[in-house]
């Protein structure tokens, strides 16, 4: 089990970093999760199950770190890394899609899900989100917080929270669209 846990380490570190955006905290979270998993000695049938379980522990550790952080004085400032007009180009003056920007179908996602390259691009796109935007977005989508909890933990207003989430989705959608679904060549360079 120890060997298998160690083999998840780099995936766990990436996962933790994406949400904490800080290497030292990510290291701490992963270390604590691995230690907890080793002392937990839960039975598991296969690698995938073990991974699900250890990632559940890791999520809890990440949440602990986020809660701890929320007590620091810089919490409470509105988050506005992605500007209000960042996506204005996508729409015409009446607020309808410009021809070039109108979303087209992404087809059946299963073929993307089964591609390792897709997930590399997915990670690149997540990495590109600005730090605080990413923290809010990942709390919502990866850690499964309700928006009220996020506002409370980070001491930001609900409106700010929704705006940040919306802009994060716009950014991620565009990135995946340009680099994968609508890409002429699917380059995994950053």
């Amino acid at each position: 089990m120890e060997k298998e846990l160690i083999s998840f380490r780099s995936d766990m570190l990436k996962f933790a970093w994406l949400q904490l955006r800080d290497e030292a905290s990510a290291e701490d979270a992963v270390q604590e999760a691995i230690t907890a998993a080793l002392t937990g000695k839960k039975k598991y049938d296969n690698r995938a199950q073990l991974k699900t379980w250890v990632f559940a522990i890791l999520k809890n550790k990440i949440v602990d770190i986020i809660r701890e952080r929320a007590r620091y004085p810089n919490a409470g400032t509105a988050i506005d890394e992605i500007q209000e007009d960042a996506y204005d180009d996508l729409f015409d003056e009446s607020g309808h899609w410009q021809d070039h920007a109108r979303p087209s179908t992404w087809g059946n996602p299963e073929s993307s899900y089964s591609s390792q390259q897709f997930w590399q691009i997915f990670e690149i796109c997540l990495t590109r989100l600005p730090d605080n935007t990413a923290r809010v977005f990942m709390m919502r989508e990866m850690l499964g917080f309700e928006t009220e909890e996020i506002c409370k933990e980070l001491a930001i207003s609900p409106t700010n929270c929704w705006v940040v989430l919306h802009r994060a989705r716009m950014a991620l959608r565009l990135c995946l669209n340009d680099k994968w679904f609508n890409a002429e060549n699917r380059d995994v360079e950053l």
């Binding site: 780099s10 995936d11 997915f122 990866m142 959608r173």
Partner: peptide, 15 residues
């Protein structure tokens, strides 16, 4: 919806 689904699947990927 696909973004949300992708984010849920993401941690399970082996890289």
């Amino acid at each position: 919806q696909l973004l949300r689904e992708g984010l849920r699947k993401f941690p399970q990927q082996d890289s």
